[in-house]
Design a protein around this nucleic acid. Structure first.
Lengths: 241, 241
DNA sequence: GACAAGCAACTTGTCAGGCAACTAGGTCAT
DNA sequence: ATGACCTAGTTGCCTGACAAGTTGCTTGTC
């Protein structure tokens, strides 16, 4: 039997599919089922864990979604050849966890610094035009007295796009989004950001752009690092208890 | 039909749940359903897309797994407040795709270089002992004439562990695993790696270890970059058409 | 006896219907 | 008006069933 005991605290507890997914995932990760090996049938798994077949199907469906197993109709479900998942799970337990956001920011700094360096080496004329366009848009936002958050995002996107590496683009995009949503939720509880701050950001962006245009990888990395360090300092205001 | 642009990378044909998951995911991403908003009931979704409720359940289950949707029994399913997923999907379409593995290696170099830098700043005595232990194990493997792949992996793991940042550890681990599985599958088709190569790797590891022990962040990064650049060059042998 | 065609058992994919647990909003008695 | 109660609606989970596809064994043929 598998009584779900740890549920009465709050409304939502882990569903049976959640639990089963975790168990199967662990068993695969621990090498209990080896890559290429056939999993038990859904019926057997259902009996083993005392759940119904739809639950098993859902759990296996998630594992397929993660690239850990592949299944062939009529044949069975098999552990993926690589054995390791195709997705990187960023476990965000809580939006207000300070250590967590610190860790993400640190990783973001690493990724975006390298991305900026690569951008300086590979940017095309189109990339430069795109970057220039975002700078102009940001300046226009400043002139209108707006914070220009969207323009800021677009500028960073244009940089990672110039790396010509979709993994850099996607990961940077992903991390950036998480940090910004944290800021957004955190800011709603505190005072608004200063108005003149955007101009500082614009200056840092300008420096990054110049380095990228010059094709100076080292300077591009330095400029990006400084920008990100400043951004992290500004963020630190929201991380104070 | 069946756009199948992204996932369901390996299965023979995309299942209905795969397709529906993609559709719902797109609709959420495109802002058709806004964060915090309630999704249609499972019954309605089933009718809308012409599938049964279990299929809808499986699709929504995957979205919950990805952190895009949260559901409360009796109330309904809602788009997560953040709106953006909690997982980063690394879309690996093919193990033998050279551009893809090149991109991953590039990202791995960025992450691991920064990780090594951080490790130099934060390593504890336990970390140093762990690193030293892995170096010794690698040396023992060399003396036995073995390639020492496991020891190599453990050394890198010990480094990212020393960053004290679980995101660095998990991501680096993840990327490293993908690259190594590629090498493993690629190597089975070609000649074996040279025997004396492990000694070279060991020298580079030694340099990294010294920098970390000295707490010299800049030198640690340089050593890591050189090691990774060499590793990438060695890998390039398998990337030749 | 070797071999190929075909068949039967098994497995996954999908559907239908139903009951239990839970939520939310309206109703009714006080 | 206000609080308890009740009912409709929703998700969580189950049983049962059929379709589609694969695998291995049987059987018939040479």
């Amino acid at each position: 039997m598998a009584p779900n005991n740890h549920q009465s605290l709050i409304g939502r507890g882990p569903s049976l599919a959640d639990v089963l997914t975790q168990k199967l995932s662990d068993e695969i990760a621990s090498g209990q089922f080896k890559p290429g090996e056939k999993l038990p049938t859904e019926q057997q798994i259902a009996e083993t864990y005392g759940v119904s077949r739809p639950i098993v199907r859902e759990a296996i469906g998630r594992l397929k979604h993660d690239g850990v197993v592949v299944s062939r109709q009529g044949a069975g479900a098999f552990v993926a050849e690589s054995g390791s998942p195709a997705v990187f799970r960023l476990q965000v337990s809580d939006f207000t966890d300070r250590d967590e956001i610190r860790g993400i920011v640190e990783l973001l700094m690493a990724v975006e610094s390298s991305a900026t360096e690569l951008a300086a080496l590979r940017r095309t004329d189109e990339d430069l035009a795109s970057l220039q366009g975002q700078l102009d848009a940001m300046q226009a936002a400043i002139d209108r007295g707006e914070p220009g958050v969207d323009e800021d995002v677009s500028f960073h996107r244009a940089i990672v796009e110039a790396t010509k590496n979709p993994f850099f683009r996607d990961l940077s995009d992903f991390l950036d989004r998480r940090v910004r949503t944290f800021i957004r939720t955190a800011r709603s509880n505190t005072a608004r950001g200063q108005a003149g701050l955007t101009a500082l950001v614009q200056n840092e962006h300008q420096a990054i752009f110049e380095a990228i245009r010059a094709g100076d990888a080292g300077r591009a990395r330095s400029a990006a690092e400084e920008h990100l360090r400043n951004a992290a300092d500004r963020l630190a205001l929201y991380l104070r208890p």
